[in-house]
Write a protein that binds this DNA or RNA. Structure first.
Lengths: 257, 257
DNA sequence: TAAGAATGTGCAAGATCGTGCAGAAACTTT
DNA sequence: AAAGTTTCTGCACGATCTTGCACATTCTTA
């Protein structure tokens, strides 16, 4: 029995019966359960199944292609996203900006918390469809397809009508001296509005965003309350001086401050 | 029986019957009542049910309709969707309502046309991300997770500021006498607004919607301009009398009028 | 008010999981 | 063909999850 063949058979059973049990598969293919678990891990990483205690189930056919599910799987595990989600407290109202990192943050939010989420990214609203505890508000208006976000005056007007406890901003660049910057003037204006309408500003930045400066200024370094970065070296000197709490998201563990 | 599987089944029964009894579930799944109680606690924590003495109820009377609606196979809807998409002409501005059928319509739109699409369904905006020729406008406001649409006063206000050539409506029911009806008063009001703001009203209805009457009136039969239905028998008498153009979408082929 | 049913909590047994490691198998290169 | 490399597999071990039971408490109903 070839490995690939086994994977195919598992997928077959999965599509037919909707679920597979690890111990049964082990007996059936005459391999150890460890191997089965490895197979299921593999299939889950590719988005073909969703691992559960004792076996695996078909992923919810909700929406999205296989590629989207694959991305989602990574997102859930993204330590950056989890670290940002941990900053959110029960009962809060949170602005969540557009961007792939922030989509991951939205997915990492604790479903048992009661939250009000305000977003200008339709894809984030859709992602929160199965969170009955969340109240989701969409900022509408002209949809920028490239950025996956509603920008423009309509979104800004709507943002001005709401106050939030926290703003999880999607950044084009964050630098210890230049602060938070964006590529587009309209985008920058909406972000500035959301910064003004919320108490706490959270920046979750992947490595390539750090030290990057884009043309349009969104916020001073001193306005940032929490900066979450991936594991690795970087100069935190100026951030510390500006009273920014820097969190380093380690793979798997909880972030060190 | 996998734990997660059991949770899914409980949610299923909950959405279907509106309530579950702990002792019955224990017998049915062959586990102790303690385990069932733990499951119900878990589901309640996530907001999927409300615990009561002896079992659990749905948090709100109408809940969890999304899963059932999305479940319908894509192929059946695609011929319907293609037929609807064919009615759209280059340069037009089109309201597209929420709903799985309309998501299929959005996906079926000709990418080479230059269109302005206005939708209250975030998932439709997301689906049109790779159509550079389209201008997409999102109606925002409170997002109804079960319906996958932005309803509420904000969306209505925004809808009133735009005029469209065509409105592709998502219906809960369409009947030759009762006209177009919806399950929810807020939903109905938004739909009525969109009807008023557009010249042509298009209804794409799967078989089970035909002849169905929901509590809240959206539009008279006479206001419908195009009705697109699946292949099969149905009484077109009253529709013809009201000057409704009826299109029958055949599997694969173009629709016959 | 009293009895019975349902519930929450703590606990222990068993099942399952992830990881690191070493041997086996398959493949590549020389 | 032989040696080296990569991949696959099984095992051990500690950690985690699930489940049923006991017992005290709360709720419902008569």
């Amino acid at each position: 029995m070839l490995t690939e063949e086994r994977l195919d058979r598992i997928r077959e059973q999965l599509t037919i019966r909707g679920k597979v049990v690890a111990s049964e598969l082990a007996t059936q293919f005459d391999v150890s359960e460890d191997t089965v678990r490895r197979d299921l891990r593999e299939l889950a990483k590719l988005g073909f199944c969703r691992r559960v205690y004792g076996g695996a189930l078909l992923p919810t056919p909700d929406f999205g292609t296989l590629a989207a599910r694959t991305a989602l799987d990574k997102d859930r595990k993204s330590s950056l996203a989890r670290a940002a989600a941990r900053l959110v407290e029960d009962g809060q109202t949170v602005f969540i900006d557009a961007g792939s990192t922030n989509l991951a943050v939205a997915n990492a939010l604790d479903p048992s918390q009661t939250l009000t989420i305000i977003t200008n990214a339709p894809v984030i609203a859709t992602a929160l469809s199965d969170r009955p505890n969340f109240t989701v508000i969409v900022l509408g208006g002209l949809y920028d397809q490239a950025k996956g976000a509603c920008l423009g005056p309509q979104a800004i007007r709507e943002a001005m009508q709401v106050y939030a406890d926290m703003f999880i901003i999607g950044v084009c660049g964050v630098d210890s001296i230049a602060g938070v910057t964006a590529l587009d003037p309209g985008e920058a204006e909406l972000k500035r509005t959301m910064v003004n309408q919320s108490s706490i500003l959270v920046v979750a930045a992947t490595a390539e965003k750090l030290g990057t400066v884009a043309p349009f200024k969104v916020a001073d370094t001193s306005m940032i309350d929490h900066l979450i970065v991936e594991d690795g070296e970087f100069d935190r000197g100026d951030f510390a001086r500006c009273d920014v709490q820097v969190h380093v998201a380690l793979d798997g563990g909880s972030p060190s401050t």
